[in-house]
């Protein structure tokens, strides 16, 4: 069975747990957690991931900066990125998608949408 590695970048431990719990319903996922953008980048430099889920508003490095850096890295050019954020304005969505995010999901948590996005982007 193929195992997909998923990176969750989120500063709120509660939200991280909510996302982890949602994704655990899908089989064959190995989930790694990061507290912020910098922590996420560190993990991306040491491991290969098949999917990244990130918040936008985080200390040290926000999610948009992370998306931009990831998209400029040739080894992560194609890896799907899902944004999960409190920012619900259209401009925020468009900005994130223009930077290279594949999916934009707003908070409060939408478990079904997260599962659907992961299923589709990983081709499960």
């Amino acid at each position: 069975m193929t195992t997909y590695k998923v990176l969750i970048v989120e500063d709120s431990p509660t939200m991280r747990q909510l996302i982890v719990f949602a994704l655990k319903r899908l089989r064959g996922l190995q989930i790694v957690e990061a507290n912020d953008g910098v922590d996420g980048l560190k993990k991306l430099s040491t491991e290969k991931f098949d999917l990244i889920l990130t918040d936008i508003n985080m200390p040290i490095m926000d999610g948009l900066k992370l998306v931009s850096l990831v998209r400029n890295d040739p080894s992560y050019k194609e890896v799907p990125i899902v944004i999960i954020t409190t920012e619900g304005a259209n401009e925020d969505r468009e900005r994130a998608l223009a930077l290279g995010a594949n999916e934009y999901i707003t908070k409060p948590i939408q478990t079904t949408k997260i599962i659907e996005a992961a299923t589709r982007l990983l081709g499960l």
Binding site: S12, P13, T14, M15, Q17, L18, F21, A22, T86, K107, P108, I109, T111
Partner: peptide, 29 residues
């Protein structure tokens, strides 16, 4: 499931400020 995670997080610490922070996170998320 979300409620389970929320209550698990709420009871995961006995630090007063941490509990307040978790409540705030739950209300946002």
């Amino acid at each position: 499931a979300n409620l389970y995670i929320a209550s698990y997080q709420l009871h995961s610490t006995l630090d007063f400020n941490e509990v307040l922070q978790i409540i705030l996170e739950i209300i946002i998320n």
